[in-house]
Amino acid sequence: MNELAELYQQVLLDHYRSPRHFGRPAGAEREAEGFNPLCGDRVKVYVDVEEGVIRALGFEGSGCAISTASASLMAEALQGRRIEEFERLFAAFRATVTGGAPDREVDLGKLAALAGVAEFPMRVKCATLAWHALEAALHSPAGGTTVSTE
């Protein structure tokens, strides 16, 4: 059961039970939805970007503990950060949850609580759902898009 304890750490459970930055922040002109057709999980990400800086970031949706906590921790980590920082953090986060070698220069902070996902390959898509949605929102012109994991 150690793998389970690694996966469902207190930080993760806390962000699942009480997600931070839940809802659409005022001024968020971009949005994108992440959808996993295999399980039906949906996460909608709202972002306000000015001059390459994420001014505000929020999310909504219904999902499992991993996708919800990942979205919440992501939103917390990226408030006020530059888009390039998002790119580097996403790369490091993805490497971590897929069991690869993350860039040592990047500090995952509380997101490290999701490292246990690497032992559960079936759940990687849950962990990265909101990230793919944010990536789509940042790269699409104002308006909505949906990204699918399949």
């Binding site: 389970l4 996966l7 295999l38 399980c39 499992c64 919800t68 079936m122 849950c126």
Partner: peptide, 19 residues
Amino acid sequence: HPHDVGTVLDAAGVAVRAG
């Protein structure tokens, strides 16, 4: 969430469908 239940069950060797 059913997926999380599925993962906990899987860790005990129990294969169910969650979705």
